[in-house]
Write a protein that binds this DNA or RNA. Structure first.
Lengths: 209, 209
DNA sequence: CTGCATCCGGGCCGATACTG
DNA sequence: CAGTATCGGCCCGGATGCAG
């Protein structure tokens, strides 16, 4: 895309990540290195040439590079996109109340939801393992040493298991739905749901603006 | 632009503000209501039909509306874009070290710089008035009741006056350049520069991540 | 004068086919 | 598996026109 030609950090940032699909590529890479094929899988609808173009562009501008196995990964600077991208997700979260309809869904997209609700480090946060079944493959939310993250695959012996359609499961994880409302939307819970909300530490309140 | 068709807050947010020029329109409106012509002035290079298209799109999606005088303004939800947009500016700020060159500049673009460096409320912050001369028109930074904001126009009796080319002035305001480095780039300072850095309150450190 | 709509050339996007 | 090549169509960009 053509540069905006403006001496402004926002415009110059958009010159780097403002192209169509680019932020979604970053979303995929925020949860770790990915191969070309992984990216195609996580970006339903993207054209192959566009993916190649975007990756080249991001690499040229120092947002991504290749790891020893040839996978794409964010540079240190690129990792910094977590803040604006997750802030966008927070702003847009009301839009998720609208049902998925024909929209695609991938389990890895749980990551921004979890990052926004359980982000940061809180030593008082209890260790917990939660298995999630929604979308194309199972995921596991792990709370360990005050930090919460999401990884693909099933858990060994989860404290809690949540299954159901994306609207219900994401609504529950985002805190937009309570247990009853999620159940109405087909979510099935095994274990004590309070395990989930206990992951929200005390230091999660945002500073006054 | 076509919807991404993904059940993900980031993708749905981009469906609303992901089009070319859209975020820059929001940047303009983050500092208050604007008329159509004001927006054209603050968005050098935008085509008239695109501006009209984007404004319609943003209004349809509840990001902006019209005030009593017919000006465009952000809705309450639209105001929430301050966080992701300013976070993007923070991420992209290293790109501002590259000189402006042929890039356009407008004085109102001081706003994101000031918001990122002096944002938030801090009761211990001293009251100060700083007049800035760079770009097309003078601007005034006002610290009052713990809050810092930027407005167009000159000050009555400023405590400090900063003049010079955008690279130098923005570098100084962003904290990327000190007084000496800014002077080398043609910045002229009248008054005590320490007035500026004193605007950074103690509560500005970001929480550990 | 402000706030758009129209028109059109060029470039980017999207889908598929193809290659090392 | 990891991209490259190709091509139709749509969107962007710049100029111009026009209605209130």
């Amino acid at each position: 895309m053509k540069s905006y030609g403006q001496y402004c950090a926002i415009a110059r940032g958009l010159d780097v990540v403002g192209d169509r699909w680019t932020v979604l590529i970053v979303r995929e890479l925020l949860t770790g290195p990915r191969r070309y094929g992984d990216l195609q899988e996580g970006l339903p609808g993207i054209a192959s040439n566009l993916l190649a173009d975007r990756l080249r562009h991001l690499e040229q501008h120092g947002v991504i590079d290749r790891d020893s196995r040839g996978r794409y990964e964010l540079t240190e600077w690129g990792q910094g996109l977590a803040e604006p991208v997750y802030a966008l997700a927070r702003w847009a979260s009301p839009l998720m109340a609208e049902p998925a309809g024909d929209d695609q869904f991938r389990s890895t997209w749980l990551a921004p939801v979890v990052a926004n609700r359980f982000g940061g480090v809180d030593p008082s946060r209890p260790d917990t393992t939660i298995e999630i079944h929604t979308g194309d493959s199972p995921m596991t939310i792990v709370s360990s040493q005050g930090r919460v993250h999401v990884r693909p695959g099933r858990a060994d012996r989860p404290d809690l298991t949540i299954s159901g359609p994306p609207e219900g499961v994401l609504g529950l994880l985002a805190g937009r739905l309570d247990k009853a409302a999620a159940s109405e939307r087909g979510v099935v819970i095994h274990g004590d749901i309070r395990r989930l909300n206990r992951l929200r530490g005390r230091s999660r309140r945002r500073p006054a603006s």
